[in-house]
Amino acid sequence: MARIHRDVSVLGSMALVALCLYCGVAGAVLNYTPGLRYDFYKNSCPRADDIVFEQMTEIFKTKPTAQDGDFGKNVAPDLLRLHFHDCFVRGCEGSVLMDKPGSEKTAPPNGRLEGFDAVDKIKAALEGECPGTVSCADLLAFAARDGVRLTGGFFYRVPAGRRDGYDSIAAEATKNLPDPRMNVDQLTLNFKNQGLTRDEMVILSGAHTIGDVACHHIDNRLYTYPGNNGVVPSLPRAFVKKLKGICPRPNLFDITVDMDQVTPIRFDSQYYKNLASKTSVLSSDQVLYDDVRTRPLVRVLESKLAFLSKFGPAMVRMGNINVLTGNQGEVRLNCRRKNSPGSA
C-alpha cells in the first residue's frame, strides 16, 4: 500500500515530464525523414486515415469465425506486431506482407504473425477510393496506431509517404528481429542497430501490454531453467501455477498465453506493473525491471499517462526506420506481391 501512495504522490510530476518529452520528441520527428509528411495524402487521398480507422473499427468489433480469418479484437496486437516486424527488417517498407518462397513470413521469428487478412481488407477499401495511392507500409503504420487507439491508448499523428519495397527475405528477419530470451545488452544493441535508443526500447516493449505469445517461448521460465525443477526462482508460485495451467508442458507451439495476464486487451501501463511484481511472461520483458539501468524508466512508465504519452513518439521514430520515399520502391496494389510490369 505504501508503494501505491508513493506512486500517486508523484503522478503529477511524472505526467508533466512525460508530456514535455512528448512535445519535444513529436516536434523533432517532423523533419526526421525527408519525404514523410503528416499531410502527405491531403490531396491524393484525403480520407486515407479515416478509411483505415473505419476498417480497423469494423474488424475489431467482428466476432471471429472460420470465414473471417484472423479478425476480431486480436487485430490490434496483430497489426501492431506486423508494423514492428516490418520496420526491423529492411525498414518500414511492407516487406513482411509479401507472399513468396523464402519470404519474411517463413522465418522462424515470424511463424505466428497474423493480421494479413485484415491488411487485405483495409487495402481493398483504400484501393476502392484512391487506386494505387496509399502504400502498404503506410497502411501498417496507420493501422498499428489505430489498434492502440481502439484498445484504450492515445491517438498519435503518423507522418506518411512511405513506399513499398520489392523483396522479402527470411534470413534477414531471423537476423534482425529480437529474440524473447535476450538480455538488456542484447536488446539495446538490437534496437541501436535500427537507430533507436535504450529508452525507446523500453517504451516500445510496452506494446506487450496487449497480445499473446506461443507457450514454447516461456519454456525457459517454467520448464528448462537450470535447477529449481526448471522454474525461474523469482516467479511467484501462484503465477507459475497459472501459467502452467495455460501451458501444461514444454514445446507447445500452437497454444498461446496472454503477455499481460491482468488486462490483456487493454492498452495501458499494466505491463510495467507486472514487471515490478515479477509477473511478466517473457524473460526479455522481465529483464527490463531486473536490470538497474532500465528499472528507473520502468517505474516511471507504471504511470499510464507517462507511458501513453511516450509511446506515440517512440512509434513515430520506429516508423521512420529506413523508409523508401519519393521515386523509391512502389505503391503495391496488392500488399502480398509486388506489382507486375505495367501496373499503375
Rank of each mutant, 00 (worst) to 15 (best):
F88C: 05
Q194M: 06
Q286C: 02
L177N: 09
G72M: 05
T256Y: 11
V89Q: 10
L282R: 14
R149T: 06
G206S: 01
P296H: 06
A18D: 00
Y272M: 06
D260G: 05
L288R: 11
S280N: 15
F239A: 06
G111M: 14
K310D: 07
H208F: 10
R249E: 12
Y223D: 03
N229G: 05
A173W: 11
F267C: 04
G91I: 03
K100Q: 13
D254Y: 09
G132C: 04
Q328G: 01
S283Q: 10
R332K: 13
A15P: 01
N327P: 00
P77I: 07
P131Y: 04
E330Q: 15
T279M: 12
A160Y: 03
F84H: 14
K338P: 01
V17M: 12
L189C: 06
R157G: 08
M315E: 10
K310G: 10
K304V: 04
N334R: 12
N251Y: 13
T133S: 09
A238G: 13
L187R: 05
G72K: 02
K244T: 09
T62P: 02
T33P: 07
E302I: 10
A144T: 02
M318A: 07
F60L: 02
K73A: 08
A66C: 04
D212S: 15
R249P: 01
K105I: 12
N31Q: 14
P226F: 10
D285F: 10
F84V: 14
H208L: 09
P108V: 12
A214H: 02
L79P: 04
K278A: 14
L79T: 12
R317L: 01
P101H: 14
P159H: 15
S343L: 00
Y223T: 07
S284N: 11
D70R: 11
E129F: 12
G27S: 10
G72Q: 02
L126G: 05
Q67E: 14
L243G: 03
G329A: 02
S340V: 11
S13E: 07
Y225N: 04
S303Y: 11
T279G: 05
Q194V: 01
F311R: 03
D185T: 05
A173F: 05
R293L: 08
K242F: 04
L11N: 05
L80D: 13
V231C: 06
R317H: 06
G94D: 04
V240A: 02
G91L: 03
T57L: 12
A344I: 09
T133H: 03
L204C: 08
D185K: 12
D199G: 07
K242T: 04
S340G: 09
F311T: 02
N251K: 11
V287K: 03
K192A: 13
F311L: 13
G326H: 06
N74E: 13
T209K: 10
P109Y: 15
L11P: 00
D138R: 00
L252R: 07
P109K: 06
M318I: 01
H5N: 08
V134E: 04
V8F: 10
N31V: 15
D49I: 11
L324C: 03
D291S: 03
P250K: 14
V8E: 13
P77R: 14
M1S: 08
T174I: 07
T106S: 15
G72H: 01
A118R: 05
Y289A: 11
G245N: 12
P250A: 12
I255Y: 09
N220T: 08
R181H: 08
G91D: 02
D99S: 11
V29Q: 13
R249L: 09
